[in-house]
Amino acid sequence: MLITRDYAFDRILDMFQSVQGTLLPAFRNLEQVSSREYPAVNILADQEDQLLMSELPGFKKEDLKLEVKGNVIRITGKRTQKHEEGSRVIHKERGNLEFDRSFKLPYQIEAEAVKAELENGVLTVRLPRAESDKPRQIKIS
């Protein structure tokens, strides 16, 4: 009974969120604030590689720098926001124009094979495992 009730409550919340979604504070904002790290990053597994994804609206290719060393990837970025002269900011929710974050992977990264893509403000970095770090099949003689 309790489970059913919880479920129904979830459904109502879901509906409220999809209908009135614009009125609810963004859940994600809270998470970002609590993690105190910018930008937020997701890491996904794709076959043998791992993909690092990050939302970086407003950043252009030339605003970002990626460095790979051993099993660490470092992402730094800086962007500027210019407003016309005589204009003034009357409401502000967006921020963070500069950052520096590093991530440690569970394997050595093949630096030469790293591929990064920036599309619609989303950065995707493919981090292939170094050949020397791949498991090898040993034949039994």
Partner: peptide
């Protein structure tokens, strides 16, 4: 899930 995009308003 639906998120509310962050907003800045600049008056000129």
């Amino acid at each position: 899930q639906i998120f509310q995009p962050n907003l800045d308003i600049v008056e000129h």
